[in-house]
Every structure is written in C-alpha cells, then in structure tokens.
C-alpha cells in the first residue's frame, strides 16, 4: 500500500491542514530520534532536539523547496538546533559522572581492552561502542552515525553536512579507523 508522499503531506500542511504534519512526525520521529541519540549520546537531549526540530520544521515548512528529501531537511534543522543549543556535538570528553548523566549508561575507564570480553553481554558492548562513538570528533561521529545508524547515502550526508562527497567518504573512513582502533579488542573477540 503506497504511502502518501512527503511532498503531498507538506502541501496539505501548507494548505492549512496541520494534522498532515502529524503524519510527518509519525513517519520520521523514530528515525530521527534514533540517530540523535547516537549523535548526542543522550535520550533526553535527543528528545529535546527532535522536538525542537519538528516544531522549527513546521514553522519553516514554507521554505522547504523540495530540492532535497524532507528527512534530510529535517535532520539538518535538528542538527542546527542541536548546535545552536550547544549540545554535545563537540567531542564529548566529559567526566565519567557526566557521561552517566548524559547517556544513562554506566561509565567505564575508557579503555575497552581492560574489559573482560568473555563476560561482555550486549549492554556492555553497546556501552563501549557508545563511549567510543562519543569520543570521535563531531564531524566524524555525525558522518558515521548518519551512514550506519540512519542508513543515509553519502550524497544525502553531503547534502546535510554541506561538504563535498569526497569529504564525506574521508570522514566516514576516518571515523571507522578510529573506532576500529578503540574497539579492537571487541572486534577481535569471539563475541561478534
């Protein structure tokens, strides 16, 4: 069954049917929230950013020209919202206590190699990965999250981040290199 296109819903919104925007929210809230959680490292921040992004998007809907996907446009708004709110897009080199507050995850000593891999359960692995992600530079983390968590193409990422395609490729590669280094023990373990 075909879904109503984003553009049709947007047209309805612009025609005064606010409820059509509700459909857009329903359509993209989970995807946006999922990516923002891994980008910001906190469900609370992700919720705030997503909420602000949706409201801003509604208010700016008239300026959406359909040259890019609605979600890309929405994510760009969310990204700018998060940046303007000075959320943790910068390298999240914060204290262990702050990490716990921000992510709701138990902090570790930051060295995955010290973790007994044989005892790692899923949540342990997720914690390590989230921590390693949070230590990436903002631009690398964003490119990788959009690729891996959100499933965007390089072109879509380039459109959101406003950088050339080659830069996206380079950033994703570097992010992977850095992550592989941080998670080398985990990647070599039998767990995966």
């Amino acid at each position: 069954m075909n879904q109503t296109s984003d553009q049709t819903l947007i047209d309805h919104c612009l025609a005064g049917r606010r409820e059509a925007f509700g459909l857009l929210v329903e359509r993209y809230q989970n995807r946006l929230f999922h990516s923002l959680v891994h980008l910001l490292g906190s469900t609370e921040d992700a919720q705030d950013a997503a909420q602000e992004a949706f409201v801003n998007a509604f208010e700016k809907l008239g300026s959406f020209r359909g040259q890019s996907q609605f979600y890309s446009w929405l994510f760009r708004i969310a990204y700018n919202t998060a940046v303007s709110s000075k959320r943790k897009l910068r390298r999240m080199s914060v204290s262990l206590e702050a990490r716990r507050d921000a992510s709701g995850l138990e902090p570790s000593d930051g060295n995955p190699t010290s973790e007994p891999s044989y005892a790692m359960d899923v949540s342990d692995r997720q914690r390590l990965v989230q921590q390693a992600l949070s230590e990436l530079g903002e631009e690398f983390r964003m490119a990788l999250v959009l690729k891996e968590m959100d499933g965007m193409s390089y072109e879509e990422i380039a459109d959101i981040v406003k950088v050339p395609l080659g830069t996206v490729r380079s950033r994703i590669h570097r992010a992977r290199l850095e992550l592989r280094e941080k998670l080398s023990v985990l990647l070599r373990s039998e767990v995966l």
């Binding site: 929210v25 989970n30 891994h38 949706f54 692995r125 990788l144 592989r180």
Partner: peptide
C-alpha cells in the same frame, strides 16, 4: 574489520521516540 564494525554498530536496538515527543510537538504546532 569494516564489516564487523558495521555489524557491531547495527547491534544497537532501534531507539523508539518517546510517546510524549509527538504529543509535545502536537501542542506546539497547534
């Protein structure tokens, strides 16, 4: 290793938006 890393990242469960997110947006949009 790239493949393993990707699998590791995808092992995250999908985070679903809290129910209040849509409701809050709804209020502000209204």
């Amino acid at each position: 290793e790239t493949s393993k890393l990707s699998a590791l990242l995808h092992s995250f469960p999908r985070e679903s938006a809290p129910r209040e997110l849509a409701a809050n947006v709804q209020k502000q949009v209204n």
